[in-house]
Amino acid sequence: MRVHKLTFAALAVVASLSLTACNEEDLTGQGSPSAGSTVSPSAGGSDQGGEQDSAGKSSGGQGPVAGNGSDGNGEIGKCRTDDLDITAADGTIGGDTEGTVAVELKNGGGRDCVLSAYAGVDLETSSGTLSAERTGQQADTSVLKDGESTFFGVTYPINESGGSGVRVTALVVTPPDETKSFSLEWPGSATLPVSDGSGSPVKVGPIGSAGQGGES
């Protein structure tokens, strides 16, 4: 009888140890995530947020945006001599006490540009270079669109002295804020009266001060 009691006791101990091991295994399994439930960092919110940020910048138009001007920051550049088609025509009206030449500046540079103040004007004559003086009229800044023109006037005294006077050979125009000049044929009277040396008798108006027919 004693042998049977020891056997049952041993079996009870083994069963108890086996049950404890099973419980520990179950608890351990519940505490660790399975391979299927593991969250990969590449699929997490940080990377998705980065994609949204990138998309937001693209669709939201953030960042520098080029304007319609001559440079990438939206500003319109000044008109360069090489961008302008410069011509001149006689704008004198019968009965005027002074002669007038209307100078046309046409924008052919393929972009809008800015013109302001006064152009430089020189007359090449048989007595040397004669620089025109500014009239003193207010000079505004204006945008000259591609393909459009603006005008300014040059006035000069008519030679009524009866003498040969000073022969004009060329008109030299330097656009505002430029150093490169453009020489063209003088369309006004062939001669100017001899100056008394008290200042230039030739005057130049600001950009936009004359129309196609002469002074505005």
Rank of each mutant, 00 (worst) to 15 (best):
M1I: 11
R2N: 09
A10S: 04
L11V: 05
A12F: 00
L17Y: 02
L19C: 02
A21N: 02
C22S: 13
C22F: 12
E24S: 09
E24I: 01
D26N: 14
D26M: 14
D26T: 06
L27T: 11
G29E: 14
G29Y: 11
S32E: 14
S42N: 12
A43H: 09
G45A: 12
Q48W: 05
G49R: 11
G50A: 09
D53V: 15
K57Y: 11
K57Q: 10
S59Q: 14
G61N: 05
P64H: 07
V65G: 09
G69N: 07
S70A: 13
S70T: 03
E75M: 12
I76L: 02
I76P: 02
K78A: 10
D82R: 11
D83C: 08
L84H: 03
D85P: 03
I86E: 07
G91F: 06
G91H: 07
T92P: 06
T92Q: 01
G94D: 11
D96P: 03
V103L: 01
E104S: 15
L105V: 03
K106S: 06
N107M: 03
N107P: 06
V114E: 00
V114R: 00
S116G: 15
A117N: 11
E124Q: 14
T125E: 04
S126I: 12
L130H: 04
A132Y: 09
A132N: 08
E133Q: 15
E133C: 04
Q137P: 01
Q138E: 14
V143F: 00
V143M: 01
K145T: 00
K145W: 00
S149P: 02
T150R: 07
F152K: 10
T155E: 11
S161I: 11
G162T: 06
G165E: 09
R167C: 05
V168S: 08
T169A: 15
A170G: 10
T174L: 08
P175F: 06
S181Q: 09
L184W: 01
P187A: 03
P187G: 09
S189R: 12
T191A: 08
T191G: 04
V194T: 10
S195I: 02
D196E: 04
V202S: 15
K203F: 12
A210V: 10
G211Q: 15
Q212H: 13
Q212D: 14
